[in-house]
């Protein structure tokens, strides 16, 4: 049994047919294509989870600074606030957002991370998943299931569209990360595969058209904050889906739309640092400060 699927519809069909959750179908598929035991695959994913945990911890508690000096320390700032006072969006939301920022800050400071699905969007999944696991007292084994669910969504987006900012803008990159995350936490909270895909679809719809415009071309700003908002987006979209709210446009069509929007974006807005925030007076000044005048 290959458990191969090419899109969301086929994945949901397999879940129904075998009475399995998304993570179980994805694990069967991985075992089939790699020839590896399921336990071996889960163990490797557990290793990824541990790296994610250390990155979150490092960013929340240590002084991190990026190579260019542009970002670092904001996750810690947020943690100090939510730990000491009431916040507008609450402890859990703030913690998830701060954790997502923490990973991106560690990434920018040349620390170790796990691309999820890319380095520039690597904060959203660990940030949200680990905060949710902590809040609901879920074990690491449960969190690994969440990572596998997330990988199924990411695989479908990679296969049918793109997760690269250079190709599809930030909507493709942090959008995919947030969609993966939303589906993972819906499934962990007992939601159905359909609900998980609704959450993923809603997440991408929320940021459709988001451009990739990194200042000086570096994976720093606005990437750290886009990971923050991606985390919030995933949490809200998951809550909507768990309440029974459905995406009017099915997941597969949303992914297709996202891809088409990405292709319609001018190259200035796809990771080239020639448009958007990168091309503002301040963005250009920062670029000059970091690289000097040689960069045209």
């Amino acid at each position: 049994m290959s458990f191969e699927f090419n899109n969301g519809r086929e994945c949901i069909e397999l879940c129904k047919q075998h009475d399995k959750q998304i993570w179980e179908v994805m694990l069967e598929r991985e075992s089939f294509i790699s020839g590896k035991e399921k336990s071996e695959i889960e163990n490797y994913m557990m290793g990824n989870l541990q790296i994610m945990k250390s990155a979150v911890r490092k960013g929340l508690f240590e002084e991190v600074k990026s190579v260019s000096g542009l970002v670092g320390g904001d996750a810690k700032k947020l943690r100090e606030r939510y730990e000491s006072q009431k916040t507008l969006s609450g402890y859990r939301m703030n913690k998830a957002v701060a954790s997502a920022m923490a990973v991106l800050e560690v990434n920018a400071a040349m620390g170790q991370i796990v691309a999820a699905p890319t380095a520039g969007s690597s904060g959203i999944l660990p940030g949200v998943l680990l905060s949710v696991a902590e809040a609901f007292e879920l074990s690491d084994e449960e969190a690994v299931k969440g990572l596998i669910t997330a990988s199924a969504i990411g695989y479908i987006i990679t296969r049918n569209a793109t997760v690269a900012g250079a190709e599809g803008g930030c909507q493709a990159e942090t959008g995919a990360a947030a969609a993966m995350t939303a589906a993972a936490i819906v499934e962990l909270m007992g939601g159905s595969p359909q609900q998980a895909f609704h959450a993923a679809a809603i997440t991408i719809k929320n940021i459709l058209g988001l451009v990739c415009d990194p200042i000086a071309g570096l994976v720093e700003a606005p990437c750290v904050k886009r990971n923050a908002i991606g985390a919030a987006n995933a949490l809200i979209s998951a809550d909507l889906a768990l309440a029974g709210v459905e995406s009017i446009i099915p997941f597969d069509e949303v992914v297709e739309a996202m891809y088409r929007v990405g292709r319609a974006m001018p190259c200035e807005l796809r990771e080239t640092a020639l448009g958007g925030l990168a091309a503002t007076p301040t963005g250009l000044e920062i670029q000059k400060r970091i690289f000097g005048d040689k960069k045209e």
């Binding site: 994805m26 991985e30 294509i33 790699s34 695959i41 490797y44 994913m45 290793g47 990824n48 790296i51 990026s66 190579v67 560690v106 990434n107 920018a108 400071a109 040349m110 620390g111 170790q112 991370i113 796990v114 691309a115 999820a116 699905p117 890319t118 380095a119 520039g120 690597s122 999944l125 990572l147 596998i148 997330a150 990988s151 199924a152 990411g154 695989y155 990679t158 296969r159 997760v163 993966m180 570096l218 994976v219 720093e220």
Partner: peptide, 24 residues
């Protein structure tokens, strides 16, 4: 078409900041 593994999506494990400019 490449048969994507789940570790192509959640991975690679790397030192930041960029998979193309650093890890590659």
């Amino acid at each position: 078409m490449k048969n994507y593994s789940m570790f192509d999506v959640i991975g690679p494990r790397m030192i930041g900041p960029s998979s193309s400019h650093t890890a590659g």
